[in-house]
Nucleic acid binder design. Structure first.
Lengths: 254, 254
DNA sequence: GTTGACCTTCACGTTGCGTAAAGGTGTAAA
DNA sequence: TTTACACCTTTACGCAACGTGAAGGTCAAC
């Protein structure tokens, strides 16, 4: 049985372009060229194409396939094992990516609600969520679901006026914190004042304030690069400074 | 603070080419061009680049990033969710690929040992392995580990003479099977003779023959495309025909 | 004035084809 | 016999996200 490009292409389920390309890169040459310059493939080429497509499905590059199908089988095995390693690495990276994307979606989701409500800064809602995750159960156990839901509802339904107030307060925190940072001492009076303002600001979002939650948030400022970036925008190190100040403020650090 | 390409590139850990490319595709234009035609970036561009790199790390395409960083945040959220879907799909595919690659490695590994032993056809060892997997425990329970290990060892250490014998037998199977296939009846005398030859051939590899294992192998000939391809090479349908013949031979089908 | 480190704009290479464009071939119907 | 139509050929640009020169201008220091 002999095949022209299109016939072989249909048989194998690939495009004619693909076959010409495989000819070009010398991975699958036709058995012969007829008098009109047509490519003619035979049984051997069919088998070889099947092999090629098999490895292609495994995600092996054509260059590697070339080695596999032209070399003794043990070279093919080595190539395949290398390929497996690559795939496993790829999967690890992918898992990491997915985790990060999901984290970011949570964050962005918050940002949307906020832009509906006249653009708070983007990371606030995540704070509530994280707080809920970390201390939610404890607080719910202590005070019941009602009060906690009301607190979250409060956040979602802030009035315009409250929004202005909270924005001003946030600015005050920033300014005071910047000044305090210049002192270099998170235990300084200024730093503790900044921390107190931060607590007030927080209380706009949290119906229940707890030192533990406050301290937990502080640690998150340092752990999560997106929060860190926000606080370190003007002065690198500010996020860490704020954390230390909060730890002192909450008595978590002497 | 103002930056030239290289300064910004160093700050952000990317190449200058990347920055020029981002300029070209209008995803990050410099704040201004100085009198010598140099690109000058400002704080705003630094922030934007940070954002771009953040999404890039998530594996988002530059085209999508363009939408994300230039559109209101909710569009970014949609893009991110789509991206997450893509990633999840990718992971599924990847898992499938890995499984297949591993299957093939097992197969190829067999082929290596064989080419060391004067080239058996590649799929035989996999048979032993699969048989071991499916019936190994049963056989080991029945006859003890010793005899089974010896059986496998036998396969790995076939003599040259045995190899010739088995190759001839394999040819006989093929020829007889082809003739039998022409009759169209897997219960025909010829088909049953082919099956008997197949059993003899098998016994070169299996120290213990069982009807169940034989029938299991027959099903695998149909289920695994690589085996199917081997038997269907000359006449499509042969693998299935052989399976039916074996099922009848082993009494698994009346 | 001359290094040397910087900057600029082309422009080709990478992977695996898709998609024309421009033209020759083979066969069956009008 | 012409004509239509399906097939074949080569050539070549396009895709993503840059890497890697090449050829040439700029800037500060020695």
């Amino acid at each position: 049985m002999e095949y022209t490009v299109q016939k072989l292409a249909r048989l194998a389920g690939v495009s004619t372009r693909t076959l010409r390309y495989y000819d070009e890169i010398e991975i699958l040459k036709p058995a012969r060229i007829n008098s009109s310059g047509y490519r003619i493939y035979g049984q051997e080429e069919v088998d070889r194409l099947q092999q090629i497509l098999f490895y292609r499905e495994l995600g092996v590059s054509l260059d590697s396939i070339k080695n596999i199908v032209t070399s003794p089988s043990f070279e093919g095995a080595i190539a395949l094992k290398e390929h497996r390693e690559k795939l496993l690495e790829k999967r690890q990276q992918l898992d990491l990516l997915i985790a990060n994307v999901e984290k970011t979606i949570a964050l962005t989701e918050g940002r949307i609600h906020m832009s509906d409500k006249e653009k708070f800064e983007g990371f606030k809602k995540k704070m509530v969520e994280d707080n809920e995750k970390k201390y939610g159960k404890e607080i719910r156990d202590k005070y019941g679901n009602d009060i906690v839901d009301k607190s979250n509802a409060k956040f979602m339904n802030m009035t315009q006026k409250e929004n202005e107030e909270v924005t001003n307060l946030a600015n005050e925190v920033q300014v005071t914190l910047a000044k305090a940072f210049a002192t270099g001492d998170p235990a300084s009076e200024l730093a503790q004042k900044a921390t107190d303002l931060h607590k007030q600001w927080l209380c706009y979002y949290w119906s229940e304030y707890s030192k533990e939650a406050h301290a937990g948030l502080a640690q998150m400022y340092v752990d999560d690069e997106r929060f860190t970036a926000h606080y370190d925008k003007e002065q690198p190190g500010t996020a860490e400074f704020l954390r230390d100040a909060i730890l002192i403020y909450t008595g978590m650090k002497q």
